[in-house]
Simulated assay, not measured.
Amino acid sequence: MKFQVLDIVPHLTNPVTGRAISPDERLSQTLTAARYAEELGFDAVALGERHAGAFLSSGVTVLLGAVAATTSRVRIGTGVTVLSILDPLRVAEDYATVDQLSRGRLEIVIGKGNELRQLPMFGIKEGEQWDALAEKYALLRRLWREQDVTWEGRFRPPLQEVTSLPRPYAGAPRVWHGSATTRTSASLAAKHGDPLFSANAIQPRDNYAVLIDHYRREYAEQGHDPRFAYVGAGAGFLYLADTTQEAKQAFGPTYEQMVAHHLRPGNHTPGNEMTFRDIDSAVAAGPVLVGSPQQIAEKILWWHEAFGHDLQSFSLPTMIPHEQQLHMLERLAAEVLPVVRRAAPTTLWSDEDPYGARPAVHGRTVADAAAEIEKTRTLTPVRAPDPHA
């Protein structure tokens, strides 16, 4: 299994202690955690996008550009790019810029978005988000794969022979599809032969397994190679301690206050309620990673029994001091990741994955580019200017 640190950049006050930090400090923490994740050997880092509620991730491409510029190995992704409300031409331009900055390390997750308050802000009527997502993704695919694109649709003005710039670093980046409550996104992923990312954030395990099973069936029915039906899974709140009882005692009051806040009218999308209201039930059967390293490893493998997933995402508990969050990352890297990697191997991002060697599959490898530069230097050495010329 591969592992990703995901931050949707919530800007929350701890409901128990009242602790809060400034926006600039919160954004700095996001970038620090991304660099730290790379140093600790995580495979990917991702940032979410929200335009309503207590989040600082509306300018996610700006943040991803900073991550790209300050890391060198880790894959860079989104969780999620709310394509249903965005202009696909701007998405093509902005994310290709991040792809260039990262030299081909970008993969994005697209979705309709579960925050209904975002829709009217961008002129999308409730109920249209699924159609908007499908249409805009079809256009995004063309913009990243073709030049001089001529197009007409419902959700943006027509295009006439448009080539988006910059071009992606080495062919179109891989696109995952976020799935939380309906089969629609799972079907769209299967149609295009793309991987699926299950939210796995607040509902029981079986609710997400139904969507994943639907995706795999449709993926095969569409004629795609089932070896590449990759699945990612998110998680609810993370809190790691020496023992599970210690973790529940330390984080339980905060968790239960967060659930109470989420369940208030207007704070959640109908049909997407949190069903595990106390910390004991959440640890036993919910989508949280709260407990000892052994408990967390066992929980991930319990999900893997149902999901067969290839990528596991973690989100840090941003309401607690950042030093404590980073210490949890350290312990995850040292005590959890090796156990799960051994028990649940995957071909994702390996030589068997069509995107595993990106950019090699879509263009020159980094080594090829370096060799060409070196060859050019050898053939045309730089000469000092002639002072008498």
Rank of each mutant, 00 (worst) to 15 (best):
M121K: 15
S102W: 00
V74Y: 03
T70V: 09
V80G: 10
T78E: 11
K112I: 12
L89M: 11
D99A: 01
D87G: 06
R117Q: 14
M121N: 12
P88G: 11
P120R: 12
L116Y: 13
R75I: 01
L86R: 13
V82Q: 11
L83G: 11
M121H: 10
L83T: 13
G123V: 06
T97V: 10
G79Y: 14
I108R: 06
Q118I: 05
M121G: 10
Q118R: 04
Q118T: 13
V109Y: 03
K112Q: 13
E93L: 01
R105I: 05
I124A: 11
N114F: 12
G79A: 15
G111M: 09
G123W: 06
D99R: 00
P120G: 10
R90T: 08
A92G: 07
V74R: 03
G111N: 09
E107W: 08
V91G: 01
L106H: 03
I110R: 02
T81D: 12
I110Q: 03
A68L: 08
V98R: 00
R103L: 12
E126Q: 14
S84D: 11
R90W: 12
P88K: 01
R103P: 02
G111T: 12
I76T: 04
V67L: 10
G123Q: 06
K112C: 12
V98F: 00
D99Y: 02
A69Q: 15
D99C: 02
L89C: 12
S84L: 08
I85V: 15
A69S: 15
L101V: 03
T70R: 14
G123D: 03
L119E: 01
V109H: 05
A69I: 07
L119D: 01
E93W: 01
A96P: 01
T70G: 12
D87Q: 02
L86P: 04
I124L: 14
S84I: 09
A69M: 15
A69K: 13
V98C: 00
D99P: 03
Q118H: 14
A69R: 15
T78P: 08
G113I: 07
L86W: 10
A68P: 12
A68Q: 07
V82R: 09
T78C: 04
A92E: 11
P88Y: 08
E107L: 09
V109K: 00
K112D: 09
R75G: 02
R117K: 14
R75Q: 08
R73C: 02
V91W: 02
I110T: 10
A69G: 15
L83F: 10
N114T: 13
L83E: 13
D94W: 03
A69L: 15
